[in-house]
Nucleic acid binder design. Structure first.
Lengths: 347, 347
DNA sequence: GTCCAGCATGTTTACGTAAACATGCTGACC
DNA sequence: GGTCAGCATGTTTACGTAAACATGCTGGAC
């Protein structure tokens, strides 16, 4: 925290930064005593303590975290490398990470990657390495980390969200496959002959998992597997898919890989005069807060982003505290199906 | 960045941390030479440089940012204190802040405040003071900062988003009033006799500004001012307001203080058999990506969150670089009205 | 051949903090 | 009354880095 010269520092106009030594001098004690007061250590008589505190107030002293970190060898900070903060779940995951980290006395340092090239990912890691972070959480829905070419630097505590690198890293993720199975089975249980599907982008690991599960359930149930429609998470792509599906006379049920695309479907069907759920049933994924207020309210798969964030923090902290190797493996957070009014039995 | 013992460090199993001295020893040079190589300084002969780089690779050296920050007196980090990351604009603002900061070589440290009490805000500031940050951006839509009781510590570079503390701090914000005026005038221009309004929460500065502007435009135009309906930004509160408004025979136009509440309105009107925009026109605020795919596509006020983030970064960086006092004042980012299909002339 | 400029590299020091160790005083106990 | 335990406080040192200054070598000019 760089101080502006002047304000709050009555005497020294040019003094850029107040150190323990300054406080010590004003209080007439050694800097070690200031340190003891600053850290609440015992063994400082109360009159001395008061003097030191007064000097701190007068000078506007605030401890220098760089020096502290240097001394302690840690920063009490967790780095978060992510691709997009705006995508549905990420901001909520990050918020949960920040909240839980704060509860443990850790702050969060964000490094966004605008274009997810391998260079940028590595660059972010380098930067993070140069920054103050005791561990790193990587939120990277794309497949980069799965490619053997991109490796996270060894010797760093890492937890990865939304990846299938569970063989090499410690991974936390929503149980995408289970969520998708719930969605598709729900539609089949209602009596639909089969379920159409709007995918996420091909680069998305989560999207692929959902699509795989959709296909698996259909095959398992002996249902025909319609060709999937390719979306990119946006409502617009869902809308486009919806216009196409409206022309499919056989289509009575659609599983969209997220709620935004489901929203696009709803609008497309509405424009084409198809009633949801009377003519077509729609299930989404994510359970964004707005989903309950779509027309009609959307049946969707609820993701517990807060829990994902919590487990990430838990994961890195346990690595930090035990100084242990990251335990490769995947920690899956369960989902639940929220049934609203966008699904019904076919006519 | 704390290293795990062992991996990547062939020789020293117990070596926790690789320093320049270790690299220097292995390369047979002084640590200063390592420093020069590390920072790309000239004056190192290429053969020496290669040796040093090789040693760095072998040991997995990464610079220690704490030591660096201590040496340089700055962290290349901007702290962001915010209330909620999930609320519509914040995540996009933060993302823009992070992106622009990254472009300038700065990272972002997030401190979330779960419950916005004064104690917590001050606590966050204290924590931030103890953390590595050269400046702070406060994103706090609530009124806390406006109360004279909560003061930001003097001597810290600060930019505040979403506040009316422009007399005391450097403030960046969307031009809420102008956006609201555009929305209300649009409806009046279409021929509506007056415009009803669903507010944001009372604690929100932005919400208050929008509501004030709504009222001002109506009064200016000599229109009757209907009692505002109180919302809390959620679609649910918009839905409740919509059910109430559906019973108002005079209501032909509604200005909702955000898009989520507008979504709630749309659903309520739909359920009550009112057609939008034939029976009622609706305007939102924010222009969330989904708004274009509501049924019907929502006319709304577009906020340029990215620009807000950009100006925040610009603001703190100029403070850092000039070491100048923050220049109190409010930097307003303009809005634009996006006309879609939820508004029409009254019947 | 001498001298010095110029350059690669080494040495010293300081950044602010806090652990570890040192000091010196008070007071209780024999 | 002397000794020493206990405690408040001071001093030394190290954390890792990089600026500032020091050193010592090479080679060109006279």
């Amino acid at each position: 925290m760089v101080e502006r010269g002047g304000s709050g520092v009555p005497g020294g106009r040019r003094k850029q930064r107040v150190s323990m030594a300054d406080v010590a001098q004003l209080a007439g004690v050694s800097s070690q005593t200031v340190s003891r007061v600053s850290n609440g250590h015992p063994g400082v008589i109360s009159s001395t303590r008061e003097q030191v505190l007064a000097a701190m107030r007068e000078l506007g002293y605030r401890p220098n975290s760089a020096a502290r970190a240097l001394r302690y060898g840690q920063f009490n900070t967790i780095g978060v490398i992510l691709f997009s903060l705006s995508s549905t779940g990420n901001s909520r995951t990050v918020e949960a990470i920040a909240t839980h980290a704060a509860a443990e006395g850790y702050a969060i340092t964000l490094i966004p990657i605008d274009v997810p090239t391998q260079d940028n990912v590595l660059g972010a890691f380098t930067r993070m390495g140069e920054l103050a972070a005791d561990a790193v959480i990587v939120i990277m829905e794309i497949h980069l980390l799965d490619a053997a070419t991109v490796q996270l630097p060894p010797g760093v505590h890492v937890v990865v969200v939304d990846s299938d690198a569970g063989d090499r890293h410690s991974v936390v993720d929503t149980d995408q496959a289970d969520g998708a199975r719930k969605a598709v089975r729900h539609l089949l249980d209602l009596g639909h002959r089969t379920v159409w599907h709007v995918t996420g982008p091909e680069t998305s690991f989560a999207g692929q998992r959902r699509t795989q599960a959709w296909r698996a359930v259909l095959e398992e149930a002996g249902c025909p597997v319609p060709p999937p429609l390719y979306g990119d998470w946006s409502a617009e792509s869902g809308y486009a898919a919806g216009l196409a599906l409206a022309d499919e006379p056989d289509c009575t049920a659609v599983f969209a890989s997220n709620d935004q695309m489901a929203l696009g479907l709803l609008r497309a069907f509405h424009e084409r005069g198809l009633s949801v759920p009377r003519d077509v049933s729609v299930v989404g994924f994510d359970d964004i807060p707005d989903a309950a207020f779509f027309v009609p309210p959307l049946t969707t798969v609820h993701q517990d982003f807060a829990e994902v964030g919590r487990r990430c923090v838990q994961g890195v902290l346990s690595q930090i505290r035990t100084q242990g190797d990251p335990r490769p493996g995947t920690d899956l957070v369960p989902t639940s199906l929220v049934v609203r009014n966008s699904t019904a039995a076919p006519r």
